[in-house]
């Protein structure tokens, strides 16, 4: 059993978003510690990670709401620090927290105010979104519930049809019907407007049907970054029986992400070519009952778990990426 070596670089030319060795510290804490993010054009990139992994910080750096301490960020080939206006004009942003400096403004006025700053604002589309999302335009922004504020932010993010959407926990605070509606609207938006999406979420199952790329973030950097197709291709869950009670993984050249044992049954999540993995397991005396691909959520959980374990095991010997 060996430590899985997950891909952390996407093989794409001129990604819409690219960060190189991005570092951001808050006092003693490093929120970003060498983030190399690549979001290909037209992708729906799902960024996952535990709380405090640095997802929100990363998005805020991309918007020039935060200055990095080291490293580079580029959007559409431009650095947000140098050309914040041009970069932001190309972005629709749904922030994780509601910002209350809009406080007592009425929702309708907030939307009008926003529209004036965006030359490409589509009033007809904004009207459709307001209706579809049942946005209470007469209410004061500060008086909205979390879910209602989310809906307003979605209108603000989508109605100028920006080429890039940065969504930070976009369904947070929405009820199940609202979530479904929002995800449907995003799908509809993608079908009508060529858009690249970077969505940060801890509810991966919600991005299951939309996401085509996965980035797993841990302690300020990516521990895996790859297309969904590659996950389907190379990550599987195997259900085995070990008739002689021998551990087929011990000594085998397998990249195991997760394992669970119950009696003589063993469930393994393995990174590698399926027929090759099955061959090795059978050679080690196991009966392979099932080999199935994982959902995006299961993949993310396996990757997050594996990272924890291997990080613990290799604490004394930092990898090349860490030094």
């Amino acid at each position: 059993m060996i430590r899985p070596t997950m891909p952390v670089r996407l093989d794409v030319e001129s990604p819409v978003v690219e960060t190189t060795g991005l570092v951001k510290r808050f006092g003693e804490t490093a929120a970003l510690s060498g983030l190399d993010l690549q979001v290909p054009e037209g992708a729906v990139y799902v960024l996952v990670g535990p709380n405090g992994a640095g997802k929100t910080t990363a998005l805020r750096v991309l918007l020039d709401l935060l200055r990095p301490d080291a490293g580079r960020a580029e959007l559409f080939g431009m650095e947000p620090r140098e050309r914040p206006g041009e970069v932001r004009a190309r972005i629709g942003y749904v922030p994780e927290r509601q910002d209350f400096h809009y406080g007592w403004i009425r929702v309708r006025d907030l939307i009008d105010h926003h529209a004036r700053y965006h030359p490409r604002w589509d009033p007809g589309y904004a009207g459709d979104l307001i209706e579809e999302l049942e946005v209470p335009t007469d209410r004061k922004y500060a008086r909205l519930s979390k879910g209602q504020a989310r809906r307003v932010q979605l209108v603000l993010a989508l109605a100028h049809r920006p080429p890039l959407l940065l969504l930070d926990e976009p369904t947070d605070g929405l009820d199940p019907v609202g979530k479904k509606k929002v995800l449907g609207l995003v799908a509809d938006h993608l079908a009508s407007t060529p858009t690249t999406v970077l969505v940060s979420t801890h509810l991966v199952y919600e991005a299951e049907r939309l996401g085509d790329h996965l980035g797993v973030m841990k302690e300020g950097r990516l521990t895996a970054q790859l297309p969904r197709e590659k996950l389907r291709d190379r990550m599987h869950r195997y259900l085995l029986r070990t008739p002689d009670g021998r551990d087929p993984v011990e000594g085998a050249d397998l990249e195991v992400l997760q394992r669970k044992r119950a009696g003589r049954e063993l469930q393994l999540t393995v990174w590698g070519e399926r027929s090759d993995v099955v061959g090795r397991l059978e050679q080690a005396g196991a009966e392979v009952r099932e080999a199935s691909p994982l959902s995006l959520e299961e993949s993310a959980l396996a990757l997050l778990g594996a990272d924890e374990r291997s990080a613990a095991r290799t604490r004394r010997e930092p990898t090349a990426a860490e030094v």
Binding site: G184, L185, A187, L190, R209, L210, D212
Partner: peptide
């Protein structure tokens, strides 16, 4: 249409 189906299933239009 791709758009209708993507929207009603909440899936990526590329998938449809």
């Amino acid at each position: 249409s791709v758009r209708e189906l993507a929207s009603s299933l909440q899936v990526n239009p590329n998938t449809v």
